[in-house]
Every structure is written in structure tokens, then in C-alpha cells.
């Protein structure tokens, strides 16, 4: 009998998918990982509905109403929730818009941008409403672990996931702690 697989869900909120690319950078170690884990909702599986999971990995900060909804769903469904990458930890580059009023950001992009035809601020009900500021995950829900980096290297992700899955204390070597 093989051990039951650990169920992992991942998602990218206000991020660039760089952290997911870093996850894919595990290369052949992905085969190892696949022996031990099963992917639930994730951009890599395209499963839309989240089920109860052991581990949730979230990339990106919270910039709109949908991000809040998804994050709260992950918190409700995942036993352990991990913030991965600069944006999830401190808002990152998207949070640089916090220097400006949201109205000014929208007008700069959609009304005053160069080469715009029929400029208008998007207002379709399908588009999630933006929050007035971008927030890191821990300002919205309880986060159990943090993994810094932009993105965290595949080695850092590997160290972290291995230590977590084998119930070891989390300790990253110096070269794997980076904010950039």
C-alpha cells in the first residue's frame, strides 16, 4: 500500500505567474514530487473548483474583489496556507500603485494612455472590481508559512516543500532566502 498523496492547490492572485514558473523549474524533481502529491485546483491542472486540501500555495497579493474571494476559499479549504513570493508577502510590484489614488491609476491607463482609441474605464460586471489598495495575503487571512523571493528559486521551493511534507523544522539555507 502506498501512502495517500498530499493534496496541494495553487493559485496566482495579483502576481505574474513567476512563482509558478519557478515551481516548474523544479524540472526532474517534479517527478519525485508527483509521487507524493496530487494537484487540486491550480493553473497547472485547470481544475476550477477547490476541494479540501492539505496544502495551499498562493502567489500574488490581493488587488481585487475576486482575489479576496479566492483567498478566503483557499483559507477555508486548505489545512496549511503558504504565501509564496514578494507580492504575496508584501504586495510587491503591483502594490506600487498604492502610491496613487485608484481613480488616477485607471485614468492614466484607460483615458490618458498613449494611442488609445475610444478611451473608457472598463466597467463590465464580469470584471472584478479593484480594491483601493493592493494588500499582502496576511492582511486578509491567516497565513501559516511565508516563502520570500521574486520568485523564490526552485531550490528554495524544493527545500521548503520537502521540509514541510516530512514534518521537519523549516530552515532555509542563506542562499535560498532572497527578497528579489
Amino acid at each position: 500500500m502506498s501512502e495517500p498523496k498530499v493534496k496541494i492547490a495553487t493559485c496566482s492572485l495579483a502576481g505574474c505567474f513567476g512563482c509558478h514558473m519557478s515551481l516548474l523549474d523544479l524540472d526532474e524533481r517534479l517527478f519525485d514530487l508527483a509521487e507524493r502529491v496530487e494537484l487540486d485546483r491550480s493553473p497547472l491542472t485547470d481544475i476550477k473548483e477547490l476541494s479540501d486540501c492539505d496544502l495551499g500555495l498562493i502567489e500574488g497579493g490581493v488587488c481585487n474583489a475576486e482575489n479576496v474571494h479566492v483567498l478566503m476559499e483557499f483559507r477555508a479549504r486548505c489545512k496549511i496556507l503558504v504565501a509564496i513570493g514578494a507580492c504575496a508577502l508584501n504586495g510587491g510590484v503591483p502594490a506600487m500603485r498604492n502610491q496613487f489614488d485608484l481613480k488616477d491609476c485607471l485614468e492614466e491607463s484607460y483615458l490618458r494612455g498613449i494611442g488609445l482609441v475610444n478611451p473608457q474605464i472598463p466597467n463590465d460586471p464580469e470584471i472584478p472590481l479593484l480594491l483601493d489598495q493592493v494588500h499582502p495575503l496576511h492582511e486578509v487571512v491567516k497565513i501559516d508559512y511565508f516563502l520570500p523571493g521574486c520568485p523564490p528559486s526552485a531550490d528554495a521551493i524544493w527545500t521548503f516543500v520537502n521540509q514541510l511534507l516530512s514534518d521537519q523544522p523549516l530552515a532555509l539555507p542563506y542562499t535560498q532566502i532572497h527578497y528579489d
Partner: peptide, 19 residues
């Protein structure tokens, strides 16, 4: 600032950002 934060093992900012 970053290097000292690495040295003391700061993984995340923990507090609410002032922005």
C-alpha cells in the same frame, strides 16, 4: 537593510504595511 533582514532570518514583514 535587506542583508541584516536575511541575517536575522526575516521571511515576511508580519505587520500591516503603511504604504
Amino acid at each position: 537593510l535587506q542583508a541584516v533582514a536575511y541575517y536575522v532570518g526575516m521571511l515576511a514583514p508580519h505587520y500591516t504595511h503603511f504604504y
